[in-house]
Amino acid sequence: MKKIVLIATLLGSLWACDSNVDPLPTSASVTFNFTHLINGEEFDLENSMMELPTGEVFTPNKFKYYISNITFTNTSNQETYTLEDGYYLIDQAGQKSFSFVIPTAAYDQLSFYVGVDQERNLSIDQVGDLDPSNDMVWNWNTGYKFLVLEGEWQYGESVREGLIIHIGNNDPASTINFREITFDLNQAAIDLERNSEVNLDFEAELSALFDAPNEIVIHELENTSIMGGEWAIKVAENYQEGMFTLK
């Protein structure tokens, strides 16, 4: 008799336990955190001297970029969720993280773009992170700088010179600098189905901007202010390729 009671209680409690399991959350608050590195190490604007792959010593004093069009995908059923109105400015000297809420699902892939889509890039009378007061608009061209890297470089005994990289431009003829970057969420062990709070930690490696697929040798450039044209496209290919990793 006692045994039966015990078993019944046990069963009962198991049962109860089962029915008490939290249901899957319907939404998750997702936070993106960005850490910026040069050759694997964090750096201070103005104070860090870093050697680039091609031998130049480079001191960055500004590094900012926009992240937008964040999309989560479940590749097995093609379910996707794109964050509307999500334009975030990441600044080595300022905001390096942001949060938003998405409906949960078994997403296994994440993508975002560096930059601002053509529609939003046609006019700068906007608010939020796209407000023109953020030092990311051109004063002689229309639209946003997608990514800005500025600093000083020196090669061997050469005099210190400025390097200015302002990448933007997705005019109708070429959306070429507006680049999508894709991450495998399973590989990073990120579960957006069962968690209601998720942190995604990204690292952005600056030296990758000069590296692959296009080697950019600063001391061989005709003009070390890259604002568009062929060289800007090369830099954009590089940031698409190897700059970001999801930890």
Binding site: L122, S123, I124, D125, W140, N141, T142, G143
Partner: peptide, 13 residues
């Protein structure tokens, strides 16, 4: 040089 595409954006120049 026509760099600015609309007056709304130009103003900030």
């Amino acid at each position: 040089d026509g760099g600015s595409r609309n007056l709304e954006s130009l103003i900030f120049g």
